[in-house]
Design a protein around this nucleic acid. Structure first.
Lengths: 343, 343
DNA sequence: TTGTATGCGTTATCAT
DNA sequence: ATGATAACGCATACAA
């Protein structure tokens, strides 16, 4: 790509000349600092309009050493849960006159690192990150660079910084317990993808429930995989229901996979919830519109986003503040895909 | 929000001091310009690492008068179709070393204008916009500001700039014709929301089919509304199927509304496609996973994004190039929600 | 091969 | 109330 050949945007200097005043006055008018005579102010305003002047954030940020930019790093913009988080965060930042640099890491650690380097260069004043990395070294480095950071959704144990997440372990447990109470003892769990932290915890929660409540503890009942898309749920359900002793319920640790599960179940000619109970996790909009509507574990995505912004600004205001961990509540949403086990 | 009290990032000057060379040399090393002795280059690299130096894009962009930033304006980040478009565009820009400023206008004209002003201030080198505005004045203004712009998805007649979109009218026609060929004469059309340009065209396409093929032309069969979410489809379907003479098929001009339709149909105890045929529009991932899978009109969202980026860079390279309109093909995806009309 | 100096557009400080 | 001017971090033209 070569350099743009476009006419350059007008500068404050040109406005000053047009209005026959000094740049200082233009600056004062632009920033509404007051101390400018009414008639001159009008002249400046007119000149601005005439030249179609838009103050350069580039120059301004550079001069002030403040970018008014916050980085948002999420694993997959196309995933409804993540796009919802990103949009909640962005909306809140906008209210504060901050702009968001939304980075779509596509669950790729290297891409995530590239983005972080980019954000550092853009001199973002803070980063809210839903990290796809397995390690925490790059985040520790951010902290050492003194850039305010909030870990979002995916918490990480051994890094000292602000974190906002739900108790995924409890969520996993709650779902399992719900199925247990309906009489299910043999429950297939779809924890795909395997590695991100929330998923590991959700799985752990289900295992705790299995142990504590004395449910079937069969390794064949846990299916993991690479993606968290429809397809994964579809395949996993086929596998689970093809087992010698198939489960009577399936807990898909993501709504999107749950939809895939429902599809597979229907295709096999089974009825939900009569023949198999199905649970999801996330409470995405789609969960209300499956047929029948999906019982699921809700996460307050919007509140999480708002909390993250709050913590970030707190830290920007006072960098020495001790990092805070905000754990938001998870909620069982009863709909119609789970039912009493038929004997 | 007060000014950040964080330690400032190290500058090139500090690196130069640390390495005991001039800033010019550091600059050369950073930009890989060559003409630097190996050992000195090593010293600079070491100093950079030691100080944790990240070149300031702010200063760089400011100095070079090139932001390397492109603005993307979309109506609703949380909508799967739009987040997919945004992500396709962003990915492609990233390959070109450009960064995206993703703006979520939330279908709000004023918000869209705020964002555009912001983008102008950020000195973006171009804008790819899926506009929520009804008028075109602000876009004409952009063009007059000489900022390269590509209209995306939602085309606008009377503004002279690059545009990428699908033939929505043909899409609407194609869907209708498909239903016609299955024997349906009385088809409910859900064109919600009403005003954006693609929707107007899709509706027009259905009307052309109705006229040309001699299908039932009953105003009660066209339902419009404010959103394009599940809910809208749900309500619209209830309305349509409650008509004195209900339609035998429903064409929801958006997959998301189609899912809402399917939900309503199921709730009323009707079978798809036996009792009612249902068609969607978009071919979102969810369309493959409804039960039964949704017959729909596919739009090549990824290709649209890539084409938009291509046109944008073309215009950046040569601002005097005549604007181009790229019309991408739409495709009928046959799945299982439409069937021959039972007599 | 290296360093010095200039300027990008803005804000802020200091005179006036 | 107003204007002249320095400074922000970097790339580059030019001198050495």
């Amino acid at each position: 790509m070569t350099a743009p050949k476009n006419k350059l945007a007008p500068t404050m200097n040109e406005v000053a000349k047009e209005a026959k005043v000094s740049v200082a006055k233009v600056s004062r008018v632009v920033n509404g600092k007051g101390g400018v005579k009414k008639d001159l102010e009008q002249r400046v305003l007119r000149a601005m309009k005439k030249l179609n002047y838009h103050p350069s954030s580039l120059a301004r940020s550079f001069k002030q050493q403040r970018s008014m930019l916050i980085g948002i790093v999420i694993p997959l913009l196309e995933h409804p849960a993540y796009s919802r988080m990103a949009s909640a965060i962005e909306r809140r930042l906008f209210d504060y006159d901050y702009r968001a640099l939304i980075c779509n890491s596509e669950e790729d650690e290297e891409r995530e690192n590239d983005y972080i380097e980019m954000l550092l260069r853009q001199r973002v004043e803070g980063i809210i990150i839903n990290s796809s990395a397995r390690g925490t070294q790059h985040l520790a480095e951010l902290r050492d660079n003194n850039i305010p950071i909030v870990l979002f959704d995916r918490m990480l144990q051994d890094v000292q910084c602000n974190q906002v997440f739900c108790d995924n372990s409890l969520g996993g447990y709650t779902g399992m317990r719900h199925l247990f109470e309906l009489g299910h003892r043999r429950v297939g769990v779809i924890g795909a993808p395997m590695y991100p932290e929330p998923m590991i915890r959700r799985i752990r929660g289900t295992r705790e429930a299995i142990a504590e409540l004395g449910m079937d503890d069969d390794p064949a009942l846990l299916v993991t995989g690479d993606t968290q898309l429809f397809d994964m749920g579809y395949q996993a359900a086929q596998h689970l229901l093809g087992l010698n002793v198939p489960p009577t319920a399936i807990f898909a640790l993501t709504d999107v996979t749950a939809v895939g599960v429902m599809h597979a179940v229907a295709e096999m000619g089974l009825k939900i919830p009569d023949d198999v109970s199905v649970m999801g996790y996330d409470d995405l909009p789609i969960a209300s519109y499956t047929i029948p509507p999906l019982t699921t574990i809700a996460q307050p995505l919007i509140e999480m986003g708002e909390k993250a912004v709050e913590l970030l600004f707190k830290q920007i205001d006072d960098p020495d503040l001790a990092p805070e961990k905000a754990v938001l509540p998870t909620r069982l949403i009863l709909r119609q895909t789970t039912a009493l086990l038929r004997h």
